[in-house]
């Protein structure tokens, strides 16, 4: 290609992002090069500082730039009800619905032996420890409805069986997991209020 080396370099980096192919990467790079609205220094430092400052919350696994995330620190939230999700984006979707006033536990994925993901690759031990240590009374399993999400729910439920905690699952008919972020607030709230013993 005839692109200057610096432009080529940016295109190469942008192409690593999901959903960005050669054409979109070139368009974005040219836009960054010429647009008056884009401040390249601000953009670069925002990206660079992201990983320095944002890390998983040691309690729930969500992202935070504090020692603990705002949800885990919020005294007005019911600490004895935990909602277990696969990914941070699921937590964001549930928060947007506004229907849940407890706390969360982010597993970081779902069981998927074909991809080499077993229980140890997920924050499952941390969940059990947390349930026991903080006297959690109800665990709502909001892992995905794909087979991996179902298997994860079964696995977690069995571990919690003798831990003196109520285990529920979000109401059926509501897409979970990767689709959770596309579900509207009312549907999510219905799923939460319609949760059943698992």
């Amino acid at each position: 290609m005839l692109l200057p080396a610096a432009l080529e370099r940016l295109v190469r980096e942008l192409k690593k992002l999901p959903g960005i192919g050669e054409k979109s990467a070139a368009r974005l790079a040219l836009h960054i090069l010429t647009s008056k609205r884009v401040d390249p220094v601000a953009l670069a430092s925002a990206i660079a500082e992201l990983r320095q400052q944002v890390h998983p919350c040691p309690i729930c696994g969500f992202y935070t730039d504090q020692p603990e995330c705002p949800i885990c620190r919020d005294p007005n939230r019911a600490g004895r009800v935990l909602c277990v999700v696969e990914q941070p984006r699921d937590l964001i979707a549930l928060e947007r619905s506004g229907g849940f006033r407890g706390r969360y536990h982010v597993l970081g994925g779902a069981l998927s032996p074909l991809d080499g993901v077993g229980p140890d690759a997920l924050r499952i031990k941390a969940l059990v420890a947390r349930v026991v240590a903080t006297g959690v009374t109800e665990t709502i399993l909001a892992t995905g409805t794909g087979v991996g999400g179902e298997a994860t729910a079964v696995y977690v439920a069995r571990l919690l069986k003798d831990k003196n905690v109520r285990v529920t699952r979000l109401a059926h008919g509501v897409p979970l997991g990767s689709e959770l972020e596309y579900v509207d607030a009312a549907t999510l709230e219905r799923a939460l209020s319609g949760r059943r013993e698992f």
Partner: peptide, 24 residues
């Protein structure tokens, strides 16, 4: 689910993990 369970059996996963796939 079957492929995942077979992989568990091949990689000698824990019985608890295999059984969660059995359930599904």
């Amino acid at each position: 689910a079957l492929k995942n369970r077979n992989r568990c059996l091949q990689t000698r996963s824990s019985r608890a993990e295999i059984e969660s796939w059995s359930e599904v």
